[in-house]
């Protein structure tokens, strides 16, 4: 178990070491990408884990539930409006709006689930939210001057590479806040796994815990989405990979593994992008090629559950 964890660390760091030594000259270009991929992958994967526990639904993930989309809508509104906004709000505004969007969708979902929504309906609802927001965004795009549209389209491709050294500190700061908040959760998540009622009977304030999950998860998704664009699949597959490797459910073990697997997935995608740089592939297409089969495999294995 520990070796699995360690080897994952090694894989992650192996990637880092490899790219560093290979491209020493351009480390200023590569280094931010590696940092960004490491944190973004980890945060998204952790957000996926939180969502799966929250909804007791192994197919929950920030992309499938439309939380990425909510974030995107926030960012879209911000980028479209950026022509009218003062310079001073530029850096913080994007993550802030992403956070609002993510929280909006999550709160909506949490409220509806309270009304006894089945597992499948939840996912369909997530897809509906995602398609609603993307339609809304394309309407916005058509109504906006071209410079902002170009910025937005670049962002909406989703990439760990769009960051400059100036943006990096804010991203790292938000990532650390996210990680610190994550560290406070394992005990309560463990209690929550066996069901809301049992958690309550063990003295947990379920209402405030759920609220803090919504807040933390939205922060994680928003941080990534604001800086990297909507990134798919990591949030849903990393928890599955972690669980099937560890064969444990204790969040104290699962959470770090999920984080590192998320990081490894993001770094791996980066690595492929570097090797295939002459084709300028998109991050999300690579993740889709890895992610979709993994989910399909899971569905096949667990078909009796759904």
């Amino acid at each position: 178990m520990i070796t699995v964890l360690l080897s994952l660390v090694l894989i992650s760091y192996g990637d880092v070491g490899f790219t560093l030594s290979d491209e020493v000259v351009v480390w200023q270009l590569r280094f931010p990408k590696i940092i960004v991929a490491f944190f973004a992958g980890g945060l998204l994967a952790s957000a996926g884990l939180l969502l799966q526990v929250f909804f007791q639904n192994p197919l929950a993930g920030p992309d499938l539930l439309g939380i990425n989309a909510g974030s995107s809508l926030g960012v879209a509104l911000f980028i479209m409006a950026s022509g009218f906004l003062p310079e001073s709000v530029m850096t913080i505004g994007q993550p802030f709006m992403a956070m609002i969007g993510a929280m909006g969708v999550f709160t909506l979902l949490a409220f509806l689930v309270h009304k006894n929504l089945s597992r499948i309906s939840l996912l369909i609802l997530g897809l509906l939210i995602a398609s609603f927001t993307s339609s809304f965004i394309s309407v916005l795009v058509n109504m906006t001057p071209s410079l902002q549209v170009k910025n937005f389209l670049m962002w909406s491709m989703g990439s760990f590479q769009g960051q400059t050294l100036e943006e990096l500190p804010l991203f790292i700061f938000l990532s650390f806040v996210g990680i610190l908040l994550l560290i406070t959760l394992p005990k309560k998540l463990n209690q929550f796994i066996i069901g809301e009622q049992y958690a309550k009977s063990m003295g947990m304030n379920v209402r405030s815990f759920k609220f803090s999950l919504i807040l933390i998860c939205s922060l994680l998704v928003a941080t990534v989405t604001a800086f990297c664009g909507p990134i798919g699949f990591i949030g849903i597959i990393a928890p599955h990979i972690a669980r099937s490797f560890l064969k444990r459910s204790d969040i104290r073990l699962v959470m770090p593994a999920v984080f590192l697997i998320g990081s490894a997935l993001a770094l791996f995608t980066e690595l492929i992008l570097i090797f295939t740089s002459q084709y300028s592939l998109a991050t999300n297409s690579i993740l889709g090629l890895i992610g979709a089969p993994v989910i399909a495999l899971y569905l096949y294995k667990e078909r009796r559950m759904l």
């Binding site: 463990n190 209690q191 049992y198 947990m204 459910s249 204790d250």
Partner: peptide
């Protein structure tokens, strides 16, 4: 209880959470 890979002993441990 729907948790995968939850060991009996871990489930019992949870009772000590308070």
């Amino acid at each position: 209880i729907h948790a995968d890979f939850l060991k009996v002993i871990e489930l019992i441990h949870l009772g000590r959470s308070p």
